[in-house]
Amino acid sequence: MAVTDKTADPAPAAAGTSRRPRRRRTFGGRNLAFWYFVGPFLLGLIIFTYIPVGWSAYLSLFDARNTVTPTSDDFVGFDNYVTMLTNADFRRSLITFSVFAAIIVPITFASSLGLALAVNKVRIMRAFFRSVFFLPFACSYVVASLVWKMSIFAGVRYGMANTVLGWFGIENIPWLFGNDPPWFWLVIATLRLWIQCGFYMILFIAALQQIPEHLYEAAYVDGAKPGWQTFWHITLPQLRASSVAVLMLVLIAAYQAFDEFWNLLPNSGNVPYARTPLIYLFHTSLGTSQDLGRGSAGALILALLIAIVTLLQGKILGFGKPEGR
């Protein structure tokens, strides 16, 4: 992401045949042009991102329940941060997230790459396969949760998973209720995998098609065997940039998990064993307690954590260098 276009547009000086007199491009005129292109967007960004984040940072220093304009009596300094960081529920939600990420990130990465390789290899019906694997992206997490909860993983006999298990004489499993054993992770992981796998597959297919053919030809000439050997030594290194991008996108998306936890788990996801950070923040700040001060502190902690993880991951995987991709 380099900013290298300072020299853009040497405005044409010749204006001999101009029909419009206002075409004189002085420096002031160009500034004005810049602002009517970028100004509206920037104004909106300030109103709907910068001011809210600043306001939220301000609220996080107050005991702000049910109010967005606390008085100076409510000032509590960094108490909200201390409370959040020492709060067992909030810390547990961060652990929940880590478990979730540890499950979903490698699985999504491997399956989307695997699908991309398989689709790239097949010679007939390629467009069909690509469409089928991509189609789940049309489903929202709400719709998918509905199908997973009410049909596939319904904890009763007519649920599809239990029907299939029943054919092998296995008793009904209450997939989504209870934490022992934690079957709900299977439900949640398969759901997210189904929705997002095709999306990342598309990214990998695009990257696979960028790999120059002559690399494979050269490998062939040098006696490399098709299959694992070329995969390890050519395909995977060539996919490095996309792999890093996919890993980061999956991880950031996992951090923000909300929809399926809300819709699948009992009590709108407000269960101690599987509360994600966003679910916890939602219930803290907009639930019955309406504690906007603590919610804001939590949101900022989470934002900071994501920023750190993103930067670290970028550093470790060599992303974010000048012209990262």
Binding site: I47, F48, T49, I51, P52, V53, W55, S56, L59, V68, I252, Y255, Q256, F258, L278, L281, F282, S285, L286, L292, G295, S296, A299, L302, A303, I306, A307
Partner: peptide
């Protein structure tokens, strides 16, 4: 800053 995290500040606004 992922947009989902800003839901609370944006809600305040």
């Amino acid at each position: 800053v992922p947009s989902a995290i800003t839901f609370l500040p944006s809600f305040v606004m």
